[in-house]
Design a protein around this nucleic acid. Structure first.
Lengths: 188, 188
DNA sequence: TCAGCATATATCAACCCGATATATGTAATT
DNA sequence: AATTACATATATCGGGTTGATATATGCTGA
């Protein structure tokens, strides 16, 4: 999904400045499945504005830079709907955590233990943050996103907590039972 | 993780050409949590080669373009280990599926049903593909990646299958109980 | 007092994706 | 037999994106 559509999505929920849109990707609901940087948000808002998909109101502020507040137009609303009617392209997932874990055999065991502990902490913090969300007041789609996301985080946390210790123990014993051959090089 | 390190990771498992490295990101284990395009793999291999982290052997092939087979050097092995010692940066996840689902209220219900069905099919296919992997012969780290990944896919599948029907039913009734106010605009 | 953080916009080099070009063999379809 | 589609194999490039940085100011806690 291009950044222009992402901005339309954020603005659908209410007018916002570029800075506030960025925050929606960092702290809001979108933070779990989308992201965009200032370097793409500001040009996107410029283009959306020139194409009439958003309205821009310059808000003079005392002792602060001018705040440009963007608001979705009817045309912008239509553009958002058109975009989400297109069959979604596959998820893109990039995880350094998984990459490092994949090569755990190359690391000192305390380093691996730290890796897992920090991941567990991350899951716990994320779940707690999401638990604070009041589900009763948000639309159905958002509720399902929330529920599915929670499920993923919770099951990941459960799995890691359940297998962490036995995994670290197995790493202590230089693996006799895992001969590494070319036949399983790129296994799924 | 930059593409150069990703290439080192693939080559750690055995020598490969640029084309084969790309396949590792498309069909292999890495496909679930990393990706790279030809446009970044080939330049990366060139740089790795000039820096002495990989060796390149030109393989003349009959009736095919020359195949350049890259092999990790000791220096490249060290570089891989150095890279995975760095604390991993946060996951990057971009999902158009979640974005569209988030705005389900804007879509016709059959379209939402299709979205969920295709997602369910995706999870089923992925789980089946991963089930074919012989776990007994791969190192511990890879086994934990596999187990954690399976857990995520399986719990997502279970959740969607459990909530799909009631969700679609709720969409049919124009929501009286979900007043949309500014107070829950960017909720987590 | 002073570092650090929040607000607010903007730019830019480095990097990366997705599409495209090139060349050929094999398999399936018509 | 002809054609289409797919697989092998490398390479380039426009355009989009990231992450860092610059600029300017107020607030807050050590």
């Amino acid at each position: 999904m291009d950044v222009r559509t992402l901005c339309l999505g954020v603005l659908y929920q209410g007018e916002a400045s570029g800075y506030e849109i960025k925050k929606a990707f960092e702290e809001g609901a979108f933070s779990h499945f989308q992201d965009a940087s200032f370097g793409s948000i500001y040009p996107a808002l410029g283009r959306l504005s020139s194409e009439g998909l958003v309205d821009c109101t310059q808000m003079a502020q005392e002792k602060r830079p001018d705040k440009k507040v963007y608001k979705l137009t009817d045309k912008g609303n239509d553009a958002l709907i058109t975009s989400i009617l297109v069959p979604p392209s596959p998820d893109k997932y990039a995880s350094d955590f998984f990459f490092v874990l994949y090569f755990a055999e190359l690391l000192p065991i305390p380093q691996v233990a730290l890796l897992l502990d920090q991941r567990i902490t991350f899951y716990k913090n994320t779940i707690e943050r999401m638990s604070e969300c009041d589900l009763s007041t948000i639309p159905e789609g958002r509720q399902l996103c929330h529920g599915l996301g929670m499920t993923v985080y919770q099951s990941s946390l459960d799995y890691l907590e359940k297998h962490k210790d036995s995994f670290l123990n197995k790493l202590k014993i230089p693996s006799q039972n895992t001969p590494f051959t070319n036949s399983n090089r790129h296994a799924s």
